[in-house]
């Protein structure tokens, strides 16, 4: 299952990473090598094995519906690269 240039570009687009044109091939080669190594997991026949998504078998860890103070707005916006009008400003979507 060799990874193609198109695969790399598709995955990069999904992950919102802008790979400069000149680096695409290098990225493809590295990913290909890693994928070949990790593809080892498919050697095992695990059709009847349940997946583990959590090391501990816990359920029902939740909190009561009781409000706690929010951040003052200045703190919420303190790290914002481009605050405006009490909000987080971003360029137009798909503009």
């Amino acid at each position: 299952m060799a990874i193609t240039r198109e695969d790399v570009l598709h995955v990069a687009a999904l992950a919102r990473l802008e790979i400069p044109e000149g680096e695409v091939e290098g990225v493809r080669e590295q990913l290909g090598a890693i994928l070949e190594a990790v593809g080892k997991v498919s050697e095992l026949d695990l059709a009847d094995v349940e997946p583990t998504s959590h090391p501990l078998d816990l359920v029902n860890q939740w909190a009561e519906d009781e409000p706690r103070p929010s951040l003052p707005r200045e703190e919420a916006l303190a790290n914002a690269p481009d605050p405006a009008d009490g909000s987080f400003r971003v360029p137009a979507v798909g503009g």
């Binding site: 299952m1 990874i3 695969d7 790399v8 598709h10 995955v11 990069a12 999904l14 992950a15 990473l17 990225v27 590295q30 990913l31 890693i34 994928l35 990790v38 593809g39 997991v41 498919s42 095992l44 695990l46 094995v49 349940e50 997946p51 583990t52 998504s53």
Partner: peptide, 30 residues
């Protein structure tokens, strides 16, 4: 991080989930 983001995105993406991430979760059980 970029390498791992791309690898992880690939492992979760449509058509590859079962072969990669899903299978890895089962290996975890093993």
């Amino acid at each position: 991080p970029k390498r791992r983001i791309l690898l992880g995105t690939y492992a979760l993406s449509a058509g590859y989930y079962d072969a990669y991430y899903g299978q890895a979760q089962k290996v975890r059980t093993v």
